[in-house]
């Protein structure tokens, strides 16, 4: 201990990296400090390298969601939802979207991934995503009021999708509809970014 406290006195005013000590009498002064400088640098360098390897290995995996190309989200396809005869004029009906879904290693077949309101108005069919454009709640259809109503922050939409009251930044999200073979209603199911003025597909 004596040795150590003596040294501590010796090096007190200096920065610890530049400690000079009184060891080793054979080597000449400049040569010795050269060697010590090299040893210090080498130690720091090797230390940094061996520490960096596991750290980078881990971080590479951590940022996998950012670095990978987005292969998980597939392009939206048209889905057959109903026949024209099932729909009532002027009365929106809800249809579940059932799709195959994958989540990391898992593949699920036929899981409900969302829902759509189909509204028939004189041979024309309009489809809305049931998700509220504001912050993503499920929008209800109110039979008596004949409107869409979001229970989260009370946005109201008329049957043509326009915002009549509330905080939503845009009208209900309309989806593309195709009538095939005269009777089949096909809808392109898409999701949109919430709380933006424009409709942005995600």
């Amino acid at each position: 201990m004596g040795l150590q406290s003596h040294l501590r006195l010796n090096i007190e005013p200096t920065y610890f990296m530049s400690t000079e000590d009184n060891f080793s009498d054979q080597e000449s002064q400049p040569e010795r400090s050269d060697r010590r400088g090299f040893i210090k640098e080498a130690s720091c360098f090797i230390g940094a390298v061996v520490g960096a390897v596991p750290m980078t290995a881990g971080i590479r995996v951590l940022i996998d969601p950012i670095s990978r190309k987005n292969s998980e989200s597939e392009k939206a396809e048209f889905i057959r939802l109903a026949e024209l005869t099932e729909l009532q004029d002027g009365e929106p009906m809800k249809f579940a979207i059932v799709e195959d879904k994958s989540d990391k290693w898992s593949r699920y077949t036929d899981v409900p991934v969302g829902a759509v309101y189909l509204l028939k108005q004189d041979e024309k069919v309009i489809a809305y995503n049931t998700v509220c454009p504001h912050l993503g709640c499920f929008v209800d259809y109110r039979k008596i009021e004949k409107d869409f109503f979001c229970p989260c922050h009370d946005s109201q939409f008329s049957l043509d999708g326009k915002l009549t009251k509330g905080v939503s930044p845009r009208p209900m999200d309309e989806l593309t509809v195709e009538i095939r073979n005269g009777v089949e209603v096909w809808v392109k199911f898409e999701r949109f970014k919430s709380n933006t003025k424009e409709k942005i597909v995600i």
């Binding site: 390897v53 590479r60 995996v61 996998d64 990391k104 290693w105």
Partner: peptide
């Protein structure tokens, strides 16, 4: 999920194979 998640780390995540090997 144990085997499945390890499989996913090793064969699908970027750098997962190396991390697990390490």
């Amino acid at each position: 999920t144990a085997w499945e998640s390890v499989y996913y780390i090793d064969y699908h995540m970027t750098g997962g194979h190396f991390l697990r090997g390490l």
